Computed example of a mutant assay.
Amino acid sequence: MKVQAYAAHEPGGPLRPHEYEAGPLGPHEVEVRVTHGGICHTDIDVIDDAWGLSRYPVVAGHEAIGVVAAVGDAVDASVLPVGRRVGVGAIAGSCFRCEWCLSGRTNLCPHQDWPVLRGDRGGFAGHVRAGDWRHVQPIPDGMRSEHAAPLLCAGTTVFSPMLDNQVLPTHRVAVVGIGGLGHLAIQFLAKWGCAVTAISTTSAKRADAERFGATGFIASGEPGVLREAAGSFDFVLSTVPADLPWDDYLAILRPQGRLCLAGVPARPVTFGPLSLVPGAKTITGGIAGSATQTRQMLDFAAHHGIRPEVELFPAAEIEAAVERVRRGNARYRAVVEF
Rank of each mutant, 00 (worst) to 15 (best):
A8K: 10
G12T: 00
P14W: 05
R16E: 13
H18A: 02
H18E: 10
H18I: 08
E21D: 15
G26Y: 03
V30Q: 06
T35F: 00
T35N: 01
T35V: 01
H36N: 05
H41Y: 10
I44A: 01
D48H: 14
D49N: 15
G52H: 12
L53C: 02
R55S: 15
V58R: 04
V59Y: 02
G61Y: 06
A64M: 11
I65Q: 07
V71F: 03
V71L: 06
D73Q: 14
A74W: 13
V75E: 00
A77S: 15
G83T: 01
V88E: 05
V88K: 09
S94M: 00
F96L: 10
F96V: 01
C98I: 02
C98E: 05
E99L: 12
L102E: 11
L102H: 12
R105P: 00
R105N: 02
T106P: 02
N107Y: 09
Q112D: 06
W114T: 08
P115Y: 06
R118Q: 15
R121C: 10
G122V: 06
F124C: 04
A125S: 13
H135Q: 13
H135E: 10
Q137W: 11
I139D: 09
P140F: 14
D141Y: 10
G142Q: 04
M143P: 08
C153E: 07
C153Q: 11
A154E: 01
G155K: 02
T156N: 11
S160E: 08
P161K: 08
M162S: 12
D164R: 15
N165F: 13
N165K: 08
L168V: 06
P169R: 12
H171C: 04
R172G: 07
G177T: 04
A185S: 05
A185V: 11
F188R: 07
K191M: 10
V196E: 02
A198I: 03
T201W: 12
S203N: 14
D208G: 01
D208W: 13
R211Y: 04
F212A: 11
G213W: 02
G213L: 00
P223N: 06
L226S: 07
F233H: 02
F233Q: 01
D234L: 02
F235E: 06
V236T: 08
L237Y: 00
S238I: 10
V240E: 00
V240M: 00
V240R: 01
P241C: 06
D243C: 04
L244D: 05
P245R: 05
D247R: 07
I252F: 04
R254G: 01
G257I: 00
A262H: 09
A262Q: 08
V264D: 03
V264Y: 10
F271R: 00
P273M: 13
P273A: 15
T282Y: 10
T284F: 13
G285E: 06
G286C: 05
S290P: 05
A291Y: 14
R295Y: 01
M297P: 07
L298C: 04
A301W: 13
R307C: 11
E309F: 08
V310W: 07
L312M: 08
F313G: 02
E317P: 01
E319Q: 15
E319F: 07
A321E: 01
V322S: 03
E323H: 11
R324G: 07
G328D: 03
R331P: 00
R331I: 08
Y332N: 04
R333V: 07
A334L: 03
